[in-house]
Simulated scan of single mutants.
Amino acid sequence: MTQLGQSGGDALVELFGRTKVVIGVVHLAPLPGSPRFDGEAVEAVYQRGLDDARSYLDGGCDGVIVENHGDIPFAKPDDIGPETAAYMAVVSDRIRRELGKPVGINVLANAAIPALAIASAAGAGFIRVNQWANAYVANEGFVEGESGRAARYRAKLRANGIRVFADAHVKHGAHAIVAD
């Protein structure tokens, strides 16, 4: 897997030391600012995320990806508040520091810019973006890939070492160009 804009180098080998990996997905509880956040102490949210990550790694996963899965219904990228990035950065940094394995970030839905900010702040090695280059229609509405903006933002952060793992065709939407 070669990073866009760079030659050579396999992202999986560079991050995990092998070409085939298993990545556990830490589904965070609802975060402050999301509709389902019930006022739970954020320390409990952080601890649950850390415990879930530890379980994945103890079970043989090579690393984890942290995502705001509890923030249903998901917002479009420009509607995600800075509080999401702040809380996700804290828990992701705690997971990386305590467990010492590769950590990635996925901000739902398709929010590459906040994911890069979180990854940069937390020392994460990669982000996941559902749709990198194309546009699709999903339950959040019309969502466009953010590759141009995200690549520029990553360069602005001087975070070109953060890898981007992206879907070719997101499974949670329809693509007008290919009529799927």
Rank of each mutant, 00 (worst) to 15 (best):
Q47G: 02
Q47N: 06
R48P: 01
R48H: 13
G49N: 01
D52Q: 14
A53S: 08
R54D: 08
S55T: 14
L57N: 07
D58H: 09
D58S: 14
G59P: 08
G60I: 10
G60L: 09
G60N: 06
C61I: 05
G63W: 07
V64Y: 04
I65R: 01
I65K: 02
I65M: 14
E67T: 10
E67I: 10
H69Q: 10
H69V: 10
H69W: 11
D71A: 07
I72Y: 11
I72G: 00
P77R: 07
D79W: 01
I80N: 08
I80T: 12
E83S: 14
A85T: 12
A86P: 00
A86Y: 13
Y87D: 00
M88S: 03
V90R: 11
V91F: 01
V91P: 00
D93R: 15
D93A: 14
R94Q: 05
R94K: 13
I95Y: 07
I95P: 04
I95M: 07
R96S: 08
L99P: 03
G100Y: 08
G100N: 11
G100S: 13
K101H: 12
K101S: 10
P102V: 11
V103M: 05
G104E: 05
G104W: 06
I105L: 00
I105F: 00
A109H: 11
A109W: 13
A112C: 04
A112I: 05
A112M: 04
I113V: 15
P114H: 13
P114D: 13
P114N: 13
A117K: 06
A119N: 03
A119R: 04
S120Y: 11
A122C: 02
A122W: 02
A122V: 04
A124W: 06
A124Q: 05
F126C: 03
F126T: 03
I127C: 03
R128N: 03
R128P: 02
N130I: 11
Q131W: 04
A133T: 12
N134Y: 09
V137D: 06
A138V: 06
A138E: 03
A138T: 15
N139Y: 12
G141E: 05
F142S: 04
F142R: 08
F142E: 10
V143M: 10
E144S: 15
E146S: 14
R149L: 15
R152T: 09
R152G: 15
R154D: 07
A155K: 14
L157C: 12
R158I: 00
G161L: 00
I162Y: 05
R163H: 09
V164L: 03
A166V: 01
A166S: 09
A168R: 10
A168M: 05
A168W: 07
A168I: 12
